[in-house]
Write a protein that binds this DNA or RNA. Sequence first.
DNA 1: CTATCAAACATTATCGTTAATGTCAACACA
DNA 2: TGTGTTGACATTAACGATAATGTTTGATAG
Lengths: 330, 330
Amino acid sequence: MSSNQNVRLIDIAMRLDLTVNTVSRALRDKSDIGFETKMLVKRTADEMGYIPNSIASSLRNGSSRTIAIIFDNLMNPYFMIMADKIHKRLDPLGYATMIFAGMDGRFEIESLAPIVSRKVDGIITFLEPSNEVLNIVEKNQIPIVLVGRKNTKLSIDSVSTDDFRGGYEIGKLFHSKNAKNVGYLGAPLGVECSKRRLNGLKQSLKDYNMSIKVENFRYVASNSVREDLQILLDNHVDAIFCFNDMMALEAITILKDKGLHVPQDIMLAGFDDLQNDLILPVRLTTIASDKDLIIDTTISMLLHRLDSSVEHHETRFIDYDIVLINGETT
Amino acid sequence: MSSNQNVRLIDIAMRLDLTVNTVSRALRDKSDIGFETKMLVKRTADEMGYIPNSIASSLRNGSSRTIAIIFDNLMNPYFMIMADKIHKRLDPLGYATMIFAGMDGRFEIESLAPIVSRKVDGIITFLEPSNEVLNIVEKNQIPIVLVGRKNTKLSIDSVSTDDFRGGYEIGKLFHSKNAKNVGYLGAPLGVECSKRRLNGLKQSLKDYNMSIKVENFRYVASNSVREDLQILLDNHVDAIFCFNDMMALEAITILKDKGLHVPQDIMLAGFDDLQNDLILPVRLTTIASDKDLIIDTTISMLLHRLDSSVEHHETRFIDYDIVLINGETT
DNA sequence: CTATCAAACATTATCGTTAATGTCAACACA
DNA sequence: TGTGTTGACATTAACGATAATGTTTGATAG
């Protein structure tokens, strides 16, 4: 139980009449230290309750063995699922994950200082970083990978699903179910992946000779799902593609309040397949990409950048593999 | 854009032909530095894109301005909501939040090293820490607050809801709705707060002369909701109190699969009121405690410990304020 | 005209750990 | 006998920021 303060290397060293360095090397099983000494040091460290000060070793090593995850809102289940998967992959590798959230949709320079300042070894972001952010990150040589929101204008490593094809398949599906008037509840203007999903949807509507009405394609602000949905209902849509499952869930909830049932009264589709990772009391038609593969790819790209320097940025696309209709695979 | 590496205090100092210390003090608006110099230093730091190395200052100051949040599973919406609230409160105070998860139900000594090692300024835990953990935390003088899982045997600051009364009210509610045979889907044995909720339930069943059958009170393992639920159905319960909303959601989903409707065919109640913070496509009968108040209380207790030393541990109980029945306040 | 003081900066030591060198005794080899 | 060699440890110098002292210059007081 000894004293009341932290045990440091020097405390062990003094106890054993060794130097700090010897203790440090002994604990990390380095060469140049006798077997007996190593054993003794380790045992003593254990007895004294030594816990290394990783702040100090981070300073010395220039690495904090921490990966930053960036997204705008902790309370979005999709991000949470991803954060969980990231955490589960990185933990065995000795990396802690630090979540930076609450950025209000944009990854700007103001949010960057706390991250860079903490000397994270890498950044996984679900938000498009601004160019300034990218400059600083590059200047500080921090590997960064963008997940799911690839913007062609950005020069950054990224992992993404095939948004266009996702949108296309939903349109095709709606057609096969005899939808005539399809609407889209999208992310706010400027979110590239939402635009790509919409483009895919439009293309399939065109290919299948369904009507394309611009007023049915909405850019939904964060708390205006209700209004945009009402507009679609006023326009008598019979099928709605939602940017993601969260929006679809909100839409279902609102529709239910209005006494409308899915899919009997109106068809609905989302994107992300949350129900695969979360318990949801409804079954959604949705685009399911392989989240584990997305995360595995992301992390391997990130770790790859950790030891090799940047030559060229690449984007890897992860195929989605199934579309679910009310729980049944098509 | 100057060089390719980090800008440090010494880089600014050399540029301006000042000492590191002067630059440091100038940037932090300390006394002993002339007004002109401060301005010059700040401007130069800005131009050079200086970002302080908080690892270094943490080492020097002995504080990382980081608060650790502990829970077992990132993917639990309740924790996520709480984490979000904590983050939103601490961020303006300059504290980063670091999430430590994946602990599999127990907060044991193995999980502690990475936390202590990082010199966090405080710990907010949603898991009961073991006594060893508590010892080490105290030895290292790290303030810690336990949220929602108060175990009377532990000497620790904590914030909790009145679990007993919550359970009691649900029983009372079931009685008012003419339930005759009430079941409980609880947390695994050993989770104190689940036991308290059950005790509350039992008490109300007794007070209202409803039948108390031990076989209807289940300790549900993480992935056996289905089996335990089936047992309750076999026992012909007409109302089920679930440990929390997540379990209630899972139960609803399973019941729906079986063609049973809530509340027509069977009554169901949860705990936490997730629907207040999350979009849920169902309305749950649930116990709603004031989550913001819980978090505010937690953080104020934590911050209080940061500057005053430990004298005595206390538990504060947060009242729940409403019970919802399918969305209607009782 | 010198002692006193304060403003404005410089020097030095320190946080805990770790990499790069230094030292020294024991032993081998020719 | 002298020259390497090696095992096992010690010494020193970082990492970047900051608190505790020192130093210088100029102004003010007596």
